[in-house]
Design a protein around this nucleic acid. Structure first.
Length: 601
DNA sequence: TGCGGCTATTG
DNA sequence: CACAATAGCCGCAG
């Protein structure tokens, strides 16, 4: 296969579409000098090995429908260097989280999403009539949509079908490239990607193609994160859980007894004979009212100040903490998500439906700080942990092109120069900047907002543009070119009323304002992560966790210092590559640690 | 059984 | 609770 591709003229970075199925084979589609494409089908029990050989020899950019393809490869032990991920680029170009092949295909062909045929449902009318194409068994119907029997898995049954499926991915990629180029070139021909609000449009457009590459590589990283998992010491984890929720219950009756014991610790402070379900917010409110505490809700931050009012409050807050561990991060969580090899595994998404941050399930992104002591490097290994400092205000300075704010970003702590500029203390400056990015209109920070506008008018105007677009329900594009759908769910005025309609518009405004910053920060973070992924392979350094502004890299002890230096170098490289016309300084806190909880801060 | 509300955890 | 997310339990509608 390597020779065939070499003869076809495939070189480093050339797009080669790929579809494979273990035990069946693979299909590859390569570009030809005459502009047409050539399909290759190969029967093979271990198609991933073929892909590995080609990647090693030629290092093409693999066109894949989604990270499902990467997952098949990674499970077979094959990690390719680069790809063109149709699903990820679809989400970037069109927004939202829908990224199935049928949708990606439809939108690059200008077909309305509402006309996409339902998968898995036998469509008698289509079979019988006008929707059937010239080739009734072919993947493309007469109406232009992909056929449900193909999208439903029919592509994987033979090498020839795999090749056709790869060919379709290549066609979508080609059209995606045109749309990206239209974004980058500022052309107006492609109305579909041009009818959105583009604050400082000239700054945004050149980024789109680069973003499509880093977002694609992030999909490879996600596939690897899903397979590799996060190292967890099960014994340590059980000890921590036991400290909150008691020993592991031997059965359902035992668990019920333990629950009752925890409940009793709170209820003994309640009036005699009263029966309240602590898991029901309404009944907790009743319980508090009974002892003379009237609250609109029972959230922890509201009860925090009432600890002195009655001993039940203290007991309740402790109960809530234990209950959280017992239900969400308890023994059931360990059993379900930590494998026999001591790896915590969840599903990863390279970009969520909103601004494009990575998301993860199984508690990987919201594990309580108390549990982090259980995240322990394997024998002979350590973690290199790095987190970006003040990433969002730094990103804001860059994407908005605010030279004054970028100058402040030159400091290790950029809130210090901002505070000096505003003539306020550091905490006030920090709250004000964060408030501006979140859309806060009341409180301590908001009082300084006028000074913030005066000092950093360019950044504030950028945020306000996002806010206005959001309020009007107009879609946005981030600095990297991701479309953020605002979906004008303004609601029926007759039903919701003027007041609530204004409230919703304001909420959309805050959403749009924040999406520009959070989305751009996510793009920058992913560039950093995929750079570490690529460069770290030579040191056996594997990213095991991505946490919005933090990387956890698992590496053999002997390579720890090299890996730490590499992570720092990769950040410099990222700053250089991402850096807009107004460069900003990026800072990271780095540590080499055996356990996640050893990290400072 | 599905869904909105409430709550807690994280960045 | 100003932005984002995942997740569990309760109460209610169907």
């Amino acid at each position: 296969m390597v020779e065939a591709l070499r003869e076809a003229g495939v070189g480093r970075g050339d797009l080669v579409a790929l579809a494979l199925a273990p035990g069946v084979g693979l299909g590859m589609v390569v570009p030809r000098p005459d502009g047409l494409r050539q399909a290759l089908a190969l029967a093979a029990d271990d198609p991933a090995a073929v892909v590995a050989a080609v990647d090693e020899a030629l290092r093409p950019r693999w066109v894949m429908w989604s990270k499902d393809t990467a997952a098949v490869l990674v499970k077979a032990g094959v990690r390719v260097a680069t790809c063109w991920d149709v699903a990820a680029i679809h989400r970037m170009l069109f927004g939202g989280w829908h990224d199935q092949p049928a949708r990606a295909w439809a939108l690059v062909h200008g077909l309305a999403p509402s006309t996409i045929p339902a998968a898995g449902v036998l469509d008698l009318f289509s079979q019988a009539g006008e929707a059937a194409g010239a080739d009734p068994d072919g993947p493309v119907r007469a109406d232009g949509h992909l056929a449900p029997d193909w999208t439903g898995g029919g592509w994987s049954t033979s090498p020839e079908r795999l090749a056709r499926w790869a060919e379709l991915a290549a066609q979508v990629a080609e059209r995606q490239l045109v749309l990206l180029a239209a974004l980058a070139g500022g052309g107006g021909a492609e109305g579909e990607v041009d009818d959105v609000v583009l604050p400082v449009a000239d700054e945004i457009r050149p980024r789109a193609l680069a973003t499509s590459r880093s977002e694609s590589a992030a999909e490879l990283l996600c596939a690897e994160l899903e397979v590799d998992g996060l190292p967890v010491d099960r014994e340590v984890a059980e000890t921590i859980i036991a400290g909150f929720a008691g020993p592991r219950p031997r059965g359902e009756a035992d668990a019920a007894r333990e629950r009752a014991r925890r409940d009793a610790e709170v209820l003994r402070h309640a009036p005699d004979g009263s029966r309240f379900d602590l898991r029901s917010p309404g009944q907790v409110k009743s319980l508090l009212r009974r002892i003379g505490i009237e609250v609109p809700d029972t959230r922890a931050w509201r009860l925090e100040g009432l600890r002195e009012a009655h001993p039940v409050v203290e007991a309740l807050l402790a109960w809530r903490k234990a209950e959280r561990v017992a239900t969400t991060y308890g023994y059931a969580w360990l059993d379900e998500h930590v494998g026999g090899d001591g790896r915590l595994r969840g599903s990863w998404s390279g970009s969520d439906g909103a601004a494009g941050r990575m998301t993860a399930s199984a508690g990987l992104h919201n594990m309580p700080a108390d549990m982090r002591g259980a995240v322990v490097a394997e024998p002979g290994h350590v973690f290199v942990r790095a987190d970006l400092g003040q990433i969002e205000p730094r990103v804001l300075a860059g994407v908005a092109g605010d030279r004054a704010l970028a100058a402040a970003a030159g400091a290790d702590d950029m809130y210090a120069p901002v505070a000096e500029q505003l003539g306020v203390d550091r905490d006030t400056a920090k709250v004000a900047v964060l408030g501006a990015m979140y859309g806060q209109t009341t409180g301590h920070g908001a009082q300084v907002l006028p000074r913030l506008h005066a000092a950093y008018p360019v950044a504030m105007a950028y945020l306000d543009a996002g806010d206005r677009a959001g309020q009007a329900g107009r879609d946005l594009r981030t600095y990297g070119g991701r479309r953020v759908r605002m979906g004008s769910d303004s609601g029926n005025l007759d039903e919701i009323g003027e007041r609530e309609a204004r409230g919703r518009a304001a909420a959309r405004g805050r959403y749009g304002r924040n999406a520009l910053v959070q989305g751009a920060a996510a793009e920058l973070f992913k560039i950093w992560a995929v750079t570490v992924r690529a460069r770290g392979a030579a040191l056996d350094a594997r990213i095991v966790l991505c946490l919005h502004d933090e990387l956890l890299v698992h590496v053999p002890e002997a390579n720890a210092d090299d890996a730490a230096a590499l992570v720092a170098d990769c950040l410099d490289e990222t700053a250089h590559r991402w850096s807009p016309t107004t460069p900003v300084r990026l800072v990271a806190d780095l540590s080499v640690i055996p356990t996640w909880s050893d990290a400072k801060g």
